[in-house]
Amino acid sequence: MLTYGTVQPGRRPSAADEAHALLVRLLRRAAEVGRLRTPVEQATAVARHHRRAPPETSMR
Rank of each mutant, 00 (worst) to 15 (best):
M1I: 01
M1H: 02
L2H: 10
L2S: 14
L2I: 12
T3S: 08
Y4V: 00
G5Y: 04
T6W: 14
T6E: 12
T6S: 10
V7E: 14
V7R: 08
Q8M: 08
P9N: 04
G10V: 01
G10P: 00
R12F: 12
P13Y: 02
A15M: 08
A16W: 09
D17T: 05
E18I: 10
E18A: 04
A19N: 00
H20W: 12
A21H: 03
A21C: 03
A21Q: 08
L22N: 09
L22K: 12
L22F: 15
L23P: 03
L23V: 03
V24I: 06
R25N: 04
L26T: 10
L27R: 00
R28W: 10
R28F: 10
R28Q: 14
R29V: 07
R29M: 13
R29I: 07
A30N: 06
A30M: 05
A30R: 05
A31T: 02
A31E: 11
E32F: 05
V33D: 14
G34V: 01
R35S: 09
L36E: 00
R37D: 15
R37H: 14
T38H: 09
T38I: 10
P39W: 00
P39K: 00
E41Y: 09
Q42H: 08
A43H: 01
A43Q: 03
A45F: 12
A45Q: 08
A47C: 10
R48V: 05
H49A: 12
H50V: 10
H50A: 14
R51E: 13
R51N: 08
A53W: 05
P55V: 04
P55C: 01
E56H: 14
E56F: 11
E56K: 09
T57M: 12
T57E: 10
S58D: 09
S58G: 12
S58Y: 14
S58R: 11
M59H: 13
R60E: 13
R60M: 09
R60F: 15
R60L: 12
R60Q: 13
